[in-house]
Amino acid sequence: MSLTFTSIDAWWWPWLFVLLAGWVPNDIWRALGVMSSGRLTEDMEIFRWVKAVATALVAGVIAQLVVLPSGSLAQVPLTVRVIALALGFAAYLNGGRRMAVGVLAGETTLIAGYFAVA
């Protein structure tokens, strides 16, 4: 099917899209987890693969947001976005692995870099 989010011009289509492509493929795994709890163990090899694939997928989203953003972030130069992510991550690694340190460093770099270049 080549139906996108904006393919059908009806009020119900985006909702159906969210239900079929968002809610169902998500909650079905939670339900399967309840059904198989006590029967399968979580350190099976298949679940290690699952976690790696899920991690790589979210990593792809990170890259998509930083390298190919749309909207307001696209107005910030590419180099500034990449450096901000790299510095934020470096600050997290060197700042006692605290999430707040990484997020603050990255945000500060993004804003300062935007004004420095503009």
């Binding site: 996108t4 899209f17 399967l32 163990t41 694939v53 749309s70």
Partner: peptide, 30 residues
Amino acid sequence: IAGGGTITTAAVAVTLSAVRLMPMVMALIP
């Protein structure tokens, strides 16, 4: 959605990112 992908692509991508919930639930329920 932002990239103009199809509903099938979206469902497969969401499935792949959600499978990890299954072992998490399996561990939590007991």
